[in-house]
Structures are given as structure tokens and as C-alpha cells.
């Protein structure tokens, strides 16, 4: 009974998520305070995760929510909260240079759209594998020589993340020999001067 609805609902949901992501993107562009921007960005990410699930990659959608919206954006919001003086009142939001700069991305988007519009009519392959956990893991850790070799990339990414963590700790420390970074740097500054 409900399978016939799926086609209709699929495009309806896609339109909904697409509109939501675009609106949130616009909100990010126009937001006064970075924390507004962060919340709009989370909106973009959640809408995109819905689109991923619609496009047959539910695992990627979940990872998008878990890592992007749950961890990375949490970090951003946390830092904005800690600095707590990030309000955008000293700078004009759009100046002459930025208006000129905005032409390039618009031109780029137009070019992409044009290319796509005049490309051959492509369709989604009905035999495409649904990105559930098991096939994703099988492809990721496919150790055969003929395989895509993603496992190497996986290990490299692990090392990269470790390096990033170490680098962040080093950067956030005030001096290299200081015992630990203070929790609120802004207040620390006032105490010093």
C-alpha cells in the first residue's frame, strides 16, 4: 500500500530538504552573530544528511549528523562561546571588494549549472548499492589488490587526525612550557595586563 507513495514522498522530501538547506545557507550568509551562523550551518548539515539518506547513503547521513553536526559544529559553538566577543559590529558586512568577489562564485555556479544542463540526461542507476554499514565496510576494508585501496587512506586519515589533535593542543597552549591552557583566554588576558 505504501510503496506507491515512496516515489512521491522521495521527491517531496528532497524538495523540502533542498529548500531548508538553501534557506539555512542564506541565513548563514546574512547572520550577524557567528553563533547564529553556526546554528544555520547545523541546519544545512541536517538537511544534507536527510538528502544523503534519500539518495541511498543512510550511513553517510548518520555520520554527517554524528561527526559534523554533533562534534565539529559543537566544537565551533564551544569556541564561539568561550571567546564571547565574536559579534560582528565593527566591520561592514558587505563592502565594495566583497561585492566584486561575489561575482566569481555566482559565475562559477552558473557555469556548473550550464554544464549540467547541457550534459546527457543521466539517471540514478537502479542497481546502485545502498550505503548501509556492511557494504560500506566491505568496500572500505577491501584488502584485495583489485580493490579501491581505501584502507590505506583510512590509516592515513587516522594519523592525520592524531597530528591535528597534537597540533591543536600545541597551538592552544599559551607558551610551550606552560602547564595547561587556561579555560577562558579572554579573561586570562585581562588578568595579565
Amino acid at each position: 500500500m505504501f510503496h506507491s507513495l515512496d516515489h512521491l514522498l522521495g521527491s517531496a522530501y528532497f524538495t523540502l530538504f533542498a529548500l531548508a538547506s538553501l534557506l539555512c545557507g542564506g541565513g548563514l550568509l546574512l547572520s550577524k552573530h557567528p553563533i547564529n551562523g553556526a546554528i544555520y550551518l547545523i541546519g544545512v548539515m541536517l538537511s544534507l544528511s536527510g538528502i544523503y539518506a534519500l539518495l541511498g547513503s543512510p550511513f553517510l547521513g548518520v555520520i554527517q549528523v554524528l561527526v559534523y553536526a554533533g562534534a565539529i559544529m559543537m566544537l565551533v559553538v564551544f569556541v564561539i562561546m568561550v571567546l564571547n566577543q565574536a559579534r560582528d559590529h565593527r566591520v561592514p558586512r558587505f563592502d565594495g571588494f566583497s561585492i566584486v568577489g561575489a561575482i566569481f562564485p555566482i559565475a562559477l555556479a552558473a557555469m556548473v549549472v550550464k554544464t549540467l544542463a547541457f550534459a546527457d540526461a543521466s539517471t540514478i542507476d537502479p542497481a546502485a548499492v545502498r550505503g548501509e554499514i556492511a557494504p560500506v565496510a566491505a568496500t572500505m576494508f577491501d584488502l584485495t589488490p583489485a580493490g579501491p585501496g581505501y584502507y590505506l587512506l583510512f590509516e592515513l586519515i587516522g594519523v592525520l587526525l592524531l597530528v591535528a589533535v597534537v597540533a591543536a593542543v600545541m597551538l592552544a597552549k599559551r607558551h610551550l612550557d606552560s602547564p595547561a591552557a587556561p579555560a577562558a583566554p579572554a579573561e586570562g588576558d585581562h588578568a595579565q595586563h
Binding site: 512521491l8 528532497f14 542564506g26 539518495l55 562564485p105 555556479a109 549540467l116
Partner: peptide
């Protein structure tokens, strides 16, 4: 699932990319 036009996906992707670029350049 198959009712989604792949062109629309790419269109959305291009629009979002442009939006991101505008944010980077103007803010």
C-alpha cells in the same frame, strides 16, 4: 528514491558551493 532527478542534486550542490564561496569572500 529513484524519483529524485540527479540534475537537481547537482544543482543544489552547485548552489550551496556558491553560497559557501560567497560567505568566505564577503564575511
Amino acid at each position: 528514491m529513484h524519483s529524485i532527478d540527479p540534475f537537481h542534486v547537482q544543482l543544489l550542490s552547485a548552489l550551496l558551493f556558491g553560497l559557501g564561496l560567497v560567505v568566505v569572500l564577503t564575511r
